[in-house]
Amino acid sequence: MNYVAEDITYRAPGTDFHGKDAYRSFISGFAPMLSGIGEIAQFVDGNRVALFYYPQTAATSTAPAAELFTITDGKS
């Protein structure tokens, strides 16, 4: 959370989160469901970083996920 900006905007399926506290709440609910992460790839273009991966949970290990971060002043 040290690298997350206070004014972060984060989109998850069906929901948009605004602010670091909302992001923290979402991640703290999602992270414990993970049993692993497979096939990680990343792409960096200037101040943007894209991550592509397969979050492994009890429900799935084949649903792809992607995240795009814009880095400003060392924070996303």
Rank of each mutant, 00 (worst) to 15 (best):
S28E: 09
T15M: 11
A66H: 08
A63V: 12
S25F: 03
T70L: 01
A59F: 13
Y10F: 15
N2R: 06
S28H: 07
T60H: 15
V4I: 13
L34G: 10
T60Q: 14
F69C: 08
F30M: 07
T72F: 00
A65D: 11
G46R: 04
T60L: 04
A58H: 15
P64T: 09
R48Q: 09
K75D: 06
F17W: 08
Y23M: 07
N2T: 13
E67M: 00
L68E: 00
Y23N: 07
D73Y: 01
T62P: 06
L51V: 14
T60E: 10
Y10D: 02
D7L: 05
V4W: 02
S61W: 11
Q42F: 11
T70M: 01
F43E: 13
D7Y: 09
E67D: 09
L34F: 01
I37P: 01
D16W: 13
P32Y: 06
M1C: 04
V44Y: 03
M33A: 12
T15L: 09
A58S: 14
F30L: 05
P64E: 14
Y53H: 14
L51K: 03
D7I: 03
F43C: 11
S35W: 01
T15G: 00
F26N: 04
R24F: 06
G19K: 11
G14M: 09
A59I: 10
A31T: 02
V49F: 03
S25Q: 15
A63K: 11
Y10G: 00
D73K: 10
R11E: 15
N47K: 11
I40C: 04
D73F: 02
M33Y: 06
P32I: 05
S25L: 15
G19C: 08
A58G: 14
G29T: 05
E67H: 09
A63L: 12
L51F: 15
V4L: 10
Q42A: 14
M33E: 10
T15K: 12
A5I: 05
Q42I: 12
R24P: 02
F69A: 09
A58Q: 15
